[in-house]
Amino acid sequence: MTFKEVFEGIQSFTESVLFAPYDALRLGTESWAMSNVVNWLLSIVGFVAFIYWMGQLKKFNENNEEDRSQTSHGYLGDAPEN
């Protein structure tokens, strides 16, 4: 067994086994938009989650529900007295 055969075996395993899920996601189309439908869906879900999270932060900020009295370092605000 030569080094060339070892590297060809690694190549064969990688292309046929490890990249198989990516080949399945291509959906067999030549269209760029159809090939990236998963990326578009994940981007939309992430954007909606970001907007929701920012809305929740704003709601808690307006209600003054967060305790802002303690800081971990003196340069972030008043340091706790020892």
Results as ranks from 00 to 15, higher is better:
residue 51 I to N: 01
residue 63 N to W: 01
residue 51 I to H: 02
residue 23 D to M: 07
residue 80 P to M: 07
residue 26 R to P: 00
residue 46 G to E: 04
residue 32 W to H: 07
residue 64 N to E: 15
residue 20 A to C: 02
residue 54 M to Q: 13
residue 38 V to K: 04
residue 78 D to S: 05
residue 18 L to V: 10
residue 56 Q to S: 03
residue 55 G to F: 06
residue 20 A to I: 03
residue 31 S to V: 01
residue 34 M to P: 00
residue 40 W to V: 15
residue 32 W to Y: 15
residue 32 W to L: 14
residue 24 A to D: 06
residue 14 T to F: 14
residue 53 W to E: 09
residue 59 K to G: 00
residue 20 A to H: 08
residue 37 V to F: 05
residue 71 T to P: 00
residue 76 L to D: 06
residue 53 W to Y: 13
residue 81 E to Q: 11
residue 22 Y to I: 07
residue 47 F to G: 11
residue 30 E to W: 07
residue 14 T to A: 13
residue 58 K to E: 10
residue 36 N to D: 05
residue 21 P to N: 03
residue 54 M to F: 10
residue 9 G to F: 13
residue 9 G to I: 01
residue 59 K to V: 05
residue 40 W to T: 14
residue 47 F to Y: 11
residue 82 N to E: 11
residue 3 F to D: 02
residue 69 S to Q: 09
residue 52 Y to K: 09
residue 60 F to D: 13
residue 31 S to W: 09
residue 51 I to D: 01
residue 73 H to C: 09
residue 48 V to W: 03
residue 68 R to H: 09
residue 40 W to C: 04
residue 14 T to D: 04
residue 41 L to W: 05
residue 13 F to G: 01
residue 2 T to F: 02
residue 38 V to R: 05
residue 12 S to F: 14
residue 80 P to W: 04
residue 57 L to D: 08
residue 75 Y to V: 08
residue 80 P to I: 03
residue 1 M to R: 08
residue 79 A to G: 01
residue 60 F to L: 05
residue 73 H to M: 15
residue 5 E to D: 12
residue 44 I to H: 00
residue 9 G to N: 13
residue 47 F to K: 07
residue 43 S to H: 03
residue 78 D to M: 03
residue 27 L to G: 02
residue 5 E to T: 06
residue 10 I to H: 03
residue 41 L to T: 14
residue 65 E to C: 04
residue 39 N to L: 10
residue 13 F to L: 12
residue 13 F to M: 09
residue 82 N to C: 04
residue 55 G to Y: 10
